[in-house]
Design a protein around this nucleic acid. Structure first.
Lengths: 223, 223
DNA sequence: GTCAAGCCGATTGTCTGACATTCTTGCAAT
DNA sequence: ATTGCAAGAATGTCAGACAATCGGCTTGAC
């Protein structure tokens, strides 16, 4: 009788679909920072009702991906360099810790996965698709964070990185940034593969610092 | 003409009021972990409509203070010790960093505030009001985090601490915990006052580790 | 011509009511 | 005791409505 063995791990709902769609739209830079989002427009574009949309917007607000100021509605926050710096600093804290832990506890299987994702980024780095570069790079970190043995570290990190997706997309387009990023990531990978916790921490730290510097350059030049 | 100089820094809205009320209710342990929240009940209790309530619930869901599983509705998540450990570990990372930065950059005025909050906790520690203890202790951290020079560090920390409010309330009720906690906090304060970054980090680390141990004890004994 | 006051459209905040879908629980039958 | 079913409860989602508020534009005064 059930021709579909649809194992419904998690039933999708309009609200969740909407959150995902909007989050992706924000990541891909579809909305300009500072621009306002009009509820009625989004409703018709997404084909959903206002209550559902508003629930989705509240979720995104709590994730700090949008701002909702009372009586003015939702908008894409303009990320100041000051806040971006603060995010990069915390990101450093988290990534360094994660890489260090990962070095001493990752499984051989996951290490293979990590190598694969590095290759994927290598391919993307040579291409012109800057969204693909950001995505594959995100996969790389994602695997490290997922294997550091602390799910909260992973969760917090994801939340922070989401907020600087704007910068990452731009800095990855910088001349030569993708290549040097690749070198830094390879350094991290080698350290983890060698089980060298100290080296992994150092490599990870350098990577974040360089990423931050690249973001600053792209910001100064771009605006 | 304006008899009310209502400086509307931030207009309150039903949604925000509701989020605050529910958050406070969760902090004070009004809901049992694992228990389900019934929308219609909350609506009548809070005197608001379902759409407004649902928006508030989505905010709290994104803060991880409640869980919403599709077609089953919202509930208070039961915090496993595994996750609690992960939270304490990240909290350590953040607090140590914050205390260290704070030691080398806090202003004299804020240092006075910090001392005041320590006194407030001292008073609460001698009382029987365990909610007051948690609150005043939270104020103490809050000042440190607010003066570490990184607003993101503060924001992330607040989010994490909120999720373990359950444990903190219980462990603060443990015999002698409040007093030793006071000693640890005083150690942190002295280090910061002396501008000794290294000592502040160490004291902060010890404090979190002790808090974690106390939480474990209260959990093992309590359930 | 510039600036202030006030009006108007656009947008949000909030509520009511409704209905289909899904979960839960209690009961009946094997 | 386990299974299956049926009634009730709760959620997911929508449509429509209306007041409050914001922003911009027009108007008017100096």
């Amino acid at each position: 009788m059930p021709p579909d063995l649809n194992l419904r791990i998690s039933p999708r709902s309009v609200q969740r679909e909407t959150v995902d769609k909007l989050r992706l739209a924000i990541f891909s830079g579809l909305f300009q920072p500072g621009s306002r989002l009009i509820e009625s427009q989004l409703c018709t574009q997404l084909g959903i009702s206002r209550p559902s949309l508003r629930e989705a917007l509240r979720s995104l607000e709590a994730e700090r991906l949008i701002e909702i100021v009372p009586n003015r509605g939702p908008s894409i926050p303009a990320l100041s360099w000051e806040v971006a710096t603060a995010i990069y600093e915390v990101r450093e804290l988290l990534e360094v810790e994660a890489a260090g832990r990962c070095a001493s506890r990752i499984s051989p299987e996951q290490l293979v996965e990590l190598e694969k994702s590095l290759s994927a980024f290598e391919a993307a780095a040579s291409s012109n698709d800057s969204l693909a570069r950001v995505m594959t790079a995100a996969d790389f970190y994602s695997i490290i964070l997922a294997n550091c043995g602390n799910p909260i570290l992973e969760e917090v990190h994801r939340g922070l990185v989401a907020r600087i997706s704007f910068f990452r997309g731009r800095s990855m387009s910088l001349e030569g940034r993708a290549q040097s990023s690749l070198a830094e990531m390879r350094e991290i990978f080698e350290s983890i593969a060698a089980g060298d916790e100290k080296a992994a921490r150092e490599a990870s730290k350098q990577h974040v610092l360089k990423a931050k510097a690249a973001a600053k350059i792209s910001m100064d030049s771009g605006l």
